[in-house]
């Protein structure tokens, strides 16, 4: 049941990743340079047409994959790092530490997240680093809550008490006993966060808050807005690629989520 999702998701995402890594080899033109007449519809030499300045759309899309994937992966990793640390400490120690950390998490949750990202990027000036940072700061609270609840149930399990009674330190109980058992749901949510981060980056670029030195899908869609009615190819193709990327990640995440749920594991044959 979940295996086809993992398969399709992995193949799609693999292709996009290869495209991002090999971008300079695959792209027919420099994505930032004027390489032909403006607003040329798709034809044999410009497979997906050109934009208002005569830049090749296909090349832009291929290079844009780099921004999307880097922002997606790095901010998901950073926010997973923050979320797991906060959640694990809150869940394991409980009491006053827990209450303080939960309040801290809620503080981030009650701020409208997209406004917060815009604010951070605007203050830090748009660049790949500041965008990634801003997204990580905003999307970690759900991870922290999930990890905390996993820790709350796992820490009362007998194997954790057994580890404590063998004299293991708090650190190794957290990292080596509880965390591996708490990871499967975190992985599923984490991969969904990659998708969220990619979409947030695209939205930022759409609003013009993009790294000016790099092409990104959201920037391409955003800048094509005024000419959408007579140059549809400028927004449709990057939009499709964005859609496929997020879809592949979502499929992967759902597949992994089902796989980590033991109550669904037995139904694989149905």
């Amino acid at each position: 049941m979940h295996s086809w999702r993992i398969g399709v998701g992995a193949v799609l995402l693999g292709l996009i990743t290869v495209m991002a890594i090999a971008a300079p080899l695959l792209a027919p033109f420099d994505p930032m340079a004027i390489s032909g007449p403006p607003l040329l519809p798709p034809d044999a030499s410009y497979l997906l047409g050109t934009d208002m300045l005569g830049r090749d759309v296909l090349s832009g899309m291929i290079h844009g994959a780099r921004v999307s994937l880097i922002v997606g992966l790095v901010s998901a990793l950073c926010s997973a790092g923050i979320g797991i640390t906060v959640g694990a400490i809150a869940g394991y120690f409980g009491g006053a530490i827990d209450r303080a950390l939960v309040r801290f998490t809620e503080f981030f949750q009650v701020i409208p997240s997209f406004m917060f990202v815009i604010l951070l990027v605007a203050i830090l000036t748009p660049s790949l680093l500041s965008i990634t940072l801003a997204i990580s700061v905003v999307i970690w609270p759900p991870v922290a809550r999930l990890v905390r609840s996993e820790f709350l149930t796992l820490k009362t399990r007998e194997f954790v008490e057994a580890a404590r009674s063998l004299g293991l330190s708090h650190g190794s109980v957290i990292v080596r006993e509880i965390l591996p058992n708490a990871m499967p749901p975190v992985l599923a949510v984490g991969s969904l966060m990659v998708a969220t981060a990619i979409l947030t980056e695209a939205s930022l670029s759409f609003l013009g808050l993009a790294d000016p030195n790099m092409t990104s899908w959201g920037y391409m869609i955003g800048s094509a807005r005024p000419v959408f009615r007579h140059a549809w190819w400028l927004s449709v193709f990057p939009g499709l690629l964005l859609f496929l990327t997020v879809l592949s990640i979502t499929l992967l995440s759902e597949g992994l989520g089902d796989k980590s749920n033991p109550s669904l594991r037995g139904q694989a044959g149905h």
């Binding site: 399990r157 007998e158 194997f159 008490e161 057994a162 009674s165 063998l166 004299g167 330190s169 058992n181």
Partner: peptide
């Protein structure tokens, strides 16, 4: 808890539920 090493060495526990007391 960091001063409990000698206690941990000398007293050990076997739990009730063998399905829950081992890290899977």
């Amino acid at each position: 808890s960091r001063d409990l090493a000698t206690v941990r060495r000398n007293i050990q526990l076997v739990f009730q539920d063998p399905y829950a007391s081992l890290n899977p």
